[in-house]
């Protein structure tokens, strides 16, 4: 059979054309083959909401949705993204209103330093898109690729649960405040 030789190829110092959709907008640019999606998002498109903590797939900070699936932008060569749809933290909300996950992270104290937060929220979105009533075990399973050094994860569980309720049309959970010694504990 006669197939085209190769659809796409570059020299090591040549740029390749990349056309893809980022947060619903068609983007077209020339990229070096060595650049990962992370680098193109941050450096070529100025979308610095996507963070990085290792660039080796070991922390989860750079998570984005790639064709709707949770993926690590540091491990994907940008040239492999042609024709695909990328959603970053910047694409989570449409307009000034926060996405329910963003609102819940803000209300429940789930963002401290905020550096793992974009990846965490994107991963939580991936989960809630499929399972808005996820259990704690399901939240742990889905977010287990995201490291956080600030929160101890607890308030992240609470935020994801609250956002899941909002996505199901239920009122959000009030933020849990610590029990104060001598008073009846509030919250769980």
């Amino acid at each position: 059979m006669e197939a085209p030789l190769v659809t796409l190829q570059s020299g090591p110092r040549e740029k390749l054309r990349l056309a893809f959709a980022v947060n619903g907008e068609e983007r077209e640019l020339l990229v070096e083959p060595y650049k990962t999606l992370l680098e193109v998002l941050r450096e070529d498109l100025g979308l610095t909401g996507t963070k990085h903590g290792c660039e080796l797939g070991e922390c989860g900070a750079c998570a984005v949705l790639l064709d709707g699936e949770l993926a690590l932008s540091c491990l994907v060569p940008a040239v492999e993204c042609g024709g695909r749809a990328v959603t970053t933290i910047e694409g989570l909300r449409d307009g000034p209103e926060l996405h329910p996950l963003q609102a819940a992270f803000a209300d429940h104290g789930a963002a401290q330093c905020g550096y793992c937060t974009p990846g965490m929220i994107v991963a939580a979105r991936w989960l809630l898109d499929r399972k808005p009533d996820a259990t704690r075990q399901e939240i742990a399973d889905a977010l287990a690729g995201q490291l956080c050094r600030c929160t101890g994860y607890q308030q992240i569980y609470e935020a994801v649960e609250s956002a899941g309720r909002v996505l199901r049309g239920l009122p959000p959970l009030p933020p849990v405040v610590a029990a104060v010694h001598g008073e009846e504990p509030h919250g769980r």
Binding site: L8, S10, E55
Partner: peptide, 13 residues
């Protein structure tokens, strides 16, 4: 940021 080394990229059809 850790970067990939330079390489030639080919995408066979």
């Amino acid at each position: 940021m850790m970067r990939l080394p330079r390489f030639r990229y080919l995408a066979p059809a």
